[in-house]
């Protein structure tokens, strides 16, 4: 038996919007730790890792570890039927082939049940060891979204370089080139507006902008985004989900042969 009650239901709506274009079908795993998902995109270039910790739910009952295969497009359709202020409860029986999403309006005058069919998904789980990153950049998520959108009108690959000068986003295409440099700026009124660049070693890596743009669908979840770079590893683009967890996107670099 599984029953997860999330008072801030809009978080789950935003989470789905953040991953449904990247991944079609995925297994949601439920354990005493929380509600989680790890999935690769169909071309195995990017990976998304979601964790919503159990403490973040008002009520969290998960009698045994459960993996529920869902079509994210269909799940998104159902969650779009929940109001932004609604409380969302996810319910499932052990061994059942459906999941139920219950939406309660804040005044309790409207209660809706949506039952969705589960599916068997043969998904591969990758082990992602903790790593020391050469450089970590924290910036406003809206700024990162703007940069990815702007650069993708010029080229299809972004080179992200971190030096002691700052972080540079560059692209090149048929019509020309673009470079955007951000310098560390912590003298801001609101901490979420800061640009913080933690450089242990300079790093420069190339990534497909198509995926970066897809990751920025998570912008409504968090005011800030953290970009972790190491020359030997995929970039990690992380958005916090309120106080309860995160969405991390991993993207394999493009490498000169």
């Amino acid at each position: 038996m599984l029953e997860l009650r999330l008072v801030q239901g809009s978080l789950l709506k935003k989470v789905l919007e953040s991953i449904k274009d990247l991944v079609n079908d995925a297994n949601f795993d439920c354990s005493s730790t929380g509600f989680s998902l790890q999935a690769m995109d169909s071309s195995h270039v990017a990976l998304v890792s979601l964790l919503l910790r159990s403490e973040g739910f008002e009520h969290y009952r998960c009698d045994r570890n459960l993996s529920m295969g869902m079509n994210l497009g269909n799940m998104s359709k159902m969650l779009k039927c929940a109001g932004n202020d609604d409380i969302i409860t996810i319910k499932a029986d052990d061994g059942g082939d459906t999941v139920t999403f219950m939406f309660e309006s804040p005044t309790q005058d409207k209660i809706a049940d949506f039952e969705m069919k589960l599916m068997d998904i043969d998904s591969e789980h990758l082990g992602i060891p903790d790593a020391e990153y050469h450089s970590i950049v924290r910036m406003p998520s809206s700024e990162f979204q703007r940069i990815c959108k702007d650069l993708s009108t010029i080229g299809d690959t972004v080179v992200i370089s971190v030096t002691k000068e700052g972080v540079k986003f560059s692209t090149a295409g048929d019509i020309g080139t673009a470079n955007i440099v951000l310098r560390q700026n912590t003298t801001v009124d609101k901490p979420e507006d800061a640009i913080v660049i933690e450089m242990n070693e300079p790093v420069s890596l190339s990534f497909a902008l198509r995926y970066m743009n897809s990751f920025t669908k998570a912008t409504p979840l968090s005011d800030t985004v953290t970009i972790s770079l190491s020359s030997e590893l995929p970039v990690v683009v992380e958005y916090k989900v309120a106080e309860m967890g995160y969405i991390r996107y991993y993207l394999a670099p493009k490498i000169e042969e």
Partner: peptide, 14 residues
Amino acid sequence: PGVQKSIKDFYRSA
């Protein structure tokens, strides 16, 4: 520019 690597070039099946 560059060859797109796979995420599986970096992480192994758990």
